[in-house]
Design a protein around this nucleic acid. Structure first.
Length: 276
DNA sequence: AAAGGGCTCAACCGCTGTCGC
DNA sequence: CGCGACAGCGGTTGAGCCCTT
C-alpha cells in the first residue's frame, strides 16, 4: 500500500546526518532558499532523499529554532492547545515560535503525557482519569442562515462533547502571524509570548456547516505556503472562534466559511469567564 | 567498573491532500 | 476526470545516552 518510495533507496544515505551533510544542506538553502525538496539533494550534492533533507532542515538546521528545555509556560500552552486541537502538532508548533512539530510531539510523548497522568488527567481526552468514558451525544447544528436549528436538513455529527476547556489567552494582543492574508480565518490561539490576562471558558460547539471548498483554489499568485495556509484555514475543518464576554452572550461573528454554503465546517464558541 | 534497563529524540515510514498535466 | 508528482503530516522506530544496581 501507499506511494512508491520518493527516491532511489539504493543510492541514498540513511541514519544520522554528518556535519558535512548538514553544512552542504545549510549552504545550499542559504543560496537557493527552501523548496523543491525532491531535486535539492542532487543539486546540493547530498546522497539523501528529499524528505530527509526537508526534515533535517525543519527540525534541526533552521536558524530560527529555539532548542533547549521547554519552559513552564510552553508546557501549559502545549497542554491547552492539545486539549483544543488534539494531535495537530504542526498547528501547535505554529503557536510556539522556534519549536518544531517533531520536537513538540516528542516532548508530549515523553514528558507531558506523564505529567498529566500524574495529575490524574487523561492525556488524550484531558478529562480526569477516573471519569467514565465520554458519552456520545448528538450535537445540535446551528445554521447561521436559519435560526430554526431543529429544521436543518444538514445531518448532525455524532461526536463526544468535550468538557469545556479552559484556556488562558491575552485578549489584547494578537499573534503577529495573524496579520497576514489569513487574519479572518486564523483562530486567535494563544502564543507563547502571550501573557495571561483573561481566563476564557471555551465552549466547543461543534456542528456540521457548509463551506466553500473551492474558495481559494487556483487563486492567482498563491504560493505553496499560502496554499497550505488556505488548506488549514479553509480546509475541511474551520475553527471559527467567537470570542466575547459571557454577559454579552458570547455573541461573536461567524467567519466567512460559516456563512457560505458548501461543505462542512466546525465552529468553536468561546466565552469569557468574567475577567477582571 | 560493568551490565542492563529505561528514556530521549532524530530520523524514518506510510499516508493524505493538492496541484499540474 | 484520472493519474502521477510532490509537500507535508502524524505515528513509529531505534541508536545512543543516562541512570540504577
Amino acid at each position: 500500500m501507499g506511494r512508491s518510495p520518493c527516491c532511489e533507496k539504493a543510492h541514498t544515505n540513511k541514519g544520522a546526518w554528518t556535519k558535512d551533510e548538514d553544512q552542504r544542506l545549510i549552504d545550499y538553502i542559504r543560496l537557493h532558499g527552501e523548496g523543491c525538496w525532491r531535486t535539492l539533494p542532487k543539486a546540493a550534492g547530498l546522497l539523501r532523499c528529499g524528505k530527509s533533507c526537508r526534515l533535517r532542515w525543519i527540525n534541526y538546521l533552521r536558524p530560527d529554532l529555539k532548542r533547549g528545555n521547554f519552559t513552564q509556560d510552553e508546557d501549559e500552552l502545549i497542554i491547552k492547545l492539545h486539549s483544543l486541537l488534539g494531535n495537530k502538532w504542526s498547528v501547535i508548533a505554529g503557536r510556539l515560535p522556534g519549536r518544531t512539530d517533531n520536537e513538540i510531539k516528542n516532548y508530549w510523548n515523553t514528558h507531558i503525557k506523564r505529567k498529566l497522568i500524574s495529575r490524574g488527567i487523561d492525556p488524550q481526552t484531558h478529562r480526569p482519569l477516573n471519569e467514565p468514558t465520554a458519552v456520545t451525544t448528538r450535537l445540535p447544528y446551528r445554521n447561521p442562515n436559519n435560526s430554526s436549528s431543529s429544521s436543518s436538513s444538514v445531518p448532525t455529527a455524532e461526536l463526544p462533547i468535550p468538557k469545556p476547556a479552559t484556556i488562558n489567552v491575552q485578549s489584547s494582543e494578537v499573534d503577529e502571524e495573524g496579520s497576514g492574508t489569513t487574519t479572518e480565518m486564523e483562530p486567535p490561539l494563544p502564543t507563547a509570548e502571550a501573557h495571561v490576562k483573561t481566563e476564557l471558558n471555551l465552549e466547543l460547539s461543534i456542528g456540521l456547516q457548509p463551506f466553500q471548498a473551492e474558495a481559494t483554489r487556483g487563486s492567482p499568485g498563491s504560493s505553496a505556503e499560502s496554499r497550505l495556509r488556505d488548506r488549514r484555514s479553509f480546509g475541511s475543518v474551520c475553527l471559527c472562534w467567537q470570542l466575547g464576554s459571557e454577559n454579552s452572550g458570547g455573541g461573536g461573528e461567524c467567519c466567512r466559511n460559516c456563512e457560505s454554503s458548501y461543505g462542512w465546517v466546525f465552529g468553536i464558541r468561546a466565552s469569557a469567564l468574567g475577567s477582571s
